[in-house]
Amino acid sequence: MRVAAGAAGFLLSLTAIPISYLLNKLSAMDSPMVVFATGAGVLLGLLLVLYLLVIGRPPTDPLFYAFAVFSFTSVIDLIISLEQDGYINGFMGFYMKEGEPYLRTAYGILICYWDGTVHYALYLMMIAAITLRWRYRSVGLYWLGSIIMSLVTLLLGTVVGKFGTEIRPAFLLNVPYVLIPIWAGKKIYRMPRALPQVMAEQVAAEQRKWLYRRPLDVCFIIYLLFAAAYILFKGFIALECSFDICDSYAYDQEPYLLDPVMYAKIQVLVNMFYLVPFFGLALYGLIEPGCEWMPDLTVVFAGAIAQAQFSYVGASLHPRTSFTYRIPQEIVPSFLYTNIFFAVGAQLLAFRCVTCSNFFLKGMPRNTEEMEKKVN
C-alpha cells in the first residue's frame, strides 16, 4: 500500500502532459482571470484526487501531498521550457500569453528547466522516501535552498524588471510556492539527524588537528575567500559602482549584468546579501571545531548556489537574451570555468561536511552504552 501511494504521486505528475494539452485547446483560456482560476482549480483538484487515491492508507507525512502536487507543476515547467525552446508545440501557449509571460525570458526558461528536471527528481526521491519510510532530511534541505533561491530571484526580478507592467492574476499562483517551502523547511529541519557511529575519542582526535593538518579544509577556505570576493565584486557592479574596473568588466566580460530584464542584477544582489554571510559562517565553521550547524547550512546553500548558477549561466548564453547582453563568444570559456568552479565548490563543501562530520560534532558519547542511549 505504501508503494502504491508513491506510484500514485508519480503518475499524477504525468497528467500534466494531457491536462496542459487540453487546456491549450480551450478558447476560454484567453482571459487572465480564467487562466488564474483554472490553474488554482487544477491544483486543488489534483490534491483532492491524490487524497482519494491514497485514502485507504494515507502517508503519515503530510509533505507527501505537497511534493506530489509540486511534482505536477515541475512537469508543467518542463513543458514550458521545451515549448519555448521550440522542441514541442501546442501545450502551454495560453499560459505564456495570459498567465506568466515573464517565463518566456531566458531566465524564466532556465528556471523552468531546473524545476522540471532537478526539482522533479528531488520530489520523486522525497515521495519515495516518505512512502518507504526512509530518511530524506539532506535531500529536503538541498531542495529547500534551491527552491527558495529560485523564487526570490524570479519574483523580485519580475516585479522590479521590465515585466513588472505585465503581471497577471496567475502571478498569485506563486504564493503557495512561497508559503509551503517555509512550512516544509521547518518540518524537514526538525527531522532527526543521522547520528554517526563514532565515539568522543575519535571526534576529539579530529578536532585537535591544526588547520595545516587538514589540507582539504585549507582548499575549501581558499575557495570560500575566492567565492566571497567574486560575489562582492559582481555585487558592486550590480549596484552601479563607478570604478573603471567595474564598468570595464560589465561591458566587456558580463554584459548580462546590464540586462533591463533585471533577473541577472537581482540574482547577483541576492548572492551578495545572502551568500557572502554564508561564506563567512562557513569559514568560521571550518576553523572552529564543534559547529554542528555546518552540515545542514552547507547543504541548504549548495542547493541555492547550484540553482542560481545554472539559471544565471544558462540565461546569459541563451538565445532569448538580447545579443547585446549575451556573454561575448571569446569570453565564454573563462566565464564557464569561473562559474562552474564557484558552483561545484559549494557542492563539494556540502559533501565534505555531511560525509566527514567529525570535526563539526560535539557532545558525542564516550562509549557504546552512551551511544545506545543517545540513539534511543
Results as ranks from 00 to 15, higher is better:
G6M: 05
L11E: 10
L14I: 11
A16N: 05
Y21P: 01
N24I: 00
N24K: 03
K25W: 11
D30A: 10
D30L: 03
P32T: 06
A37G: 11
A37E: 07
G39Q: 09
G41H: 13
L44S: 10
L48N: 04
L48M: 09
P59N: 09
T60H: 12
D61R: 01
F64M: 01
F67T: 04
F70Y: 12
T73R: 04
D77Q: 10
S81I: 06
D85T: 11
G86D: 01
M92I: 03
F94A: 00
K97S: 08
E100C: 09
P101M: 14
L103A: 07
R104P: 01
T105M: 10
T105R: 13
C112I: 10
G116Y: 15
H119V: 12
Y120K: 06
M126T: 10
I130F: 09
R133M: 12
W134E: 09
W134K: 15
W134A: 10
W134R: 15
R135F: 07
G140Q: 00
W143I: 08
L144S: 05
I147T: 14
V152K: 03
L154D: 03
L154T: 11
T158K: 00
V159Q: 11
G164P: 01
P169L: 04
P169A: 02
A170Q: 08
L173H: 05
N174F: 15
I180A: 04
P181R: 03
I182T: 04
W183Q: 04
A184Y: 07
G185A: 02
K186I: 15
M199N: 08
E201G: 07
E206K: 14
Q207K: 14
R214A: 04
L224S: 06
L225E: 09
Y230C: 01
F233A: 02
I237N: 02
F243S: 13
I245A: 05
I245S: 09
D247L: 05
D252G: 02
Q253K: 08
V270G: 00
N271S: 05
L275G: 08
V276I: 02
P277N: 09
F279L: 10
E288I: 15
E292H: 06
T298W: 11
V300L: 07
I305R: 07
I305C: 08
A306D: 06
A306H: 13
Y312W: 12
V313F: 06
G314A: 05
G314I: 02
S316W: 09
H318N: 13
F323N: 11
T324Y: 14
I331N: 07
V332Q: 11
T338Y: 11
V344R: 06
A350E: 00
C356S: 15
K362Y: 10
G363D: 00
P365A: 02
E369H: 12
E369V: 14
E370W: 12
M371I: 08
E372A: 15
K373T: 13
